[in-house]
């Protein structure tokens, strides 16, 4: 549903009018007050909580997380999960989005709907479907055996294969849609022009297509990375405790072991990762060659 997060700079739609108070401005008050109290305050309190323990101000939570190789490994797991998921989504999504953007007419509508529809299906439902697929008597093993790749069904559940298979399955549309929306705007004559100037396909791709679609790559990459680094349901069901991520630690800290400072510190670290990513991507799209709009 979130197509391109950096589109959140929606405020460019606002008129840069010089401000003078107008009683009509009060219509913004209920929403602003609500979001201030229900969103900003809790998040700020959470950040505050990460610096506090029973005896007052302390960095114990961070010391615990950042000083312990176990937790460092978990942060590494989350980053690895996000990196691989993003890379695979990009490798598969790029050509798919390209084909989708080049097709015209009613087929484009249909294929677009087919990419879009899975996004609206509950992640829990899809992941449930994935766990069924991964069973020893599931469709993956069925296909592998019948196609002669393996002799006997093998164990797939709780393996990294099933994890990445599932992550890519759930998050791939988030890569394709931003790529698609950039590629659709691309003038195909540019490519013809490049070819007519004697550039080979590889050269055309590297010097023309890729730079022009870079904004889509950045948008899709940022989006997929930031949701997969925080993913909880899919890794939880597909690998569980065998592959601990920051999300699992946070959930456990609050729901099981009740170590709130640990959870809060982990949450703030994740917050920092997300914020850094968003800042980096908005910096990237602003630099020449990656311009948007």
């Amino acid at each position: 549903m979130t197509l391109a997060r950096d589109d959140l700079a929606v405020a460019s739609t606002a008129k840069p009018a010089r401000w003078s108070f107008d009683a009509k401005a009060l219509i913004a008050a209920p929403g602003l007050i609500f979001m201030g109290l229900a969103f900003a305050v809790p998040v700020l309190m959470l950040i505050g909580d990460s610096f506090v323990d029973r005896d007052g101000l302390s960095l114990a939570g961070y010391r615990k997380v950042l000083g312990d190789p176990y937790y460092i490994g978990i942060i590494g797991n989350s980053l690895q999960l996000a990196c691989i998921t993003t890379a695979v989504c990009l490798a598969v999504g790029y050509p798919a989005a390209w084909a989708l953007a080049r097709i015209r007419g009613v087929w484009q509508v249909i294929l677009f709907a087919l990419i879009f529809l899975p996004l609206t299906v509950s992640i829990v439902v899809k992941t449930f479907g994935l766990t069924i697929m991964m069973r020893r008597d599931g469709i993956i093993n069925f296909l592998l055996v019948n196609l002669g790749f393996i002799e006997r069904p093998m164990r797939l559940v709780f393996t990294e294969f099933s994890l990445y298979f599932g992550m890519v399955n759930v998050f791939l549309p988030f890569m394709i849609l931003p790529l698609y929306s950039v590629m659709r705007m691309l003038d195909p004559r540019l490519l013809d022009a490049s070819a007519s100037l004697g550039a080979g396909p590889v050269h055309t791709f590297l010097r023309v297509t890729l730079p022009l679609t870079m904004p889509g790559v950045i948008a899709g990459g940022t989006l997929v990375f930031s949701i997969s680094v925080a993913a909880y349901v899919t890794p939880g069901l597909l690998v569980g405790d065998r592959f601990m991520t920051m999300s699992q630690v946070m959930a456990k800290a609050y729901l099981n072991i009740r170590d709130f400072q640990l959870g809060a510190s982990m949450a703030v670290i994740m917050l920092v990762i997300s914020a850094a990513l968003i800042l980096a991507s908005s910096y990237l799209v602003r630099t020449p060659g990656g311009e948007r709009r």
Partner: peptide
């Protein structure tokens, strides 16, 4: 511009972090 970004920003935060908050 800031207000618009603020109102749309819960989408950018990891869900679990919001939940904990």
């Amino acid at each position: 511009k800031v207000v618009a970004t603020f109102m749309a920003s819960p989408l950018m935060l990891p869900g679990l972090v919001l939940g904990i908050a």
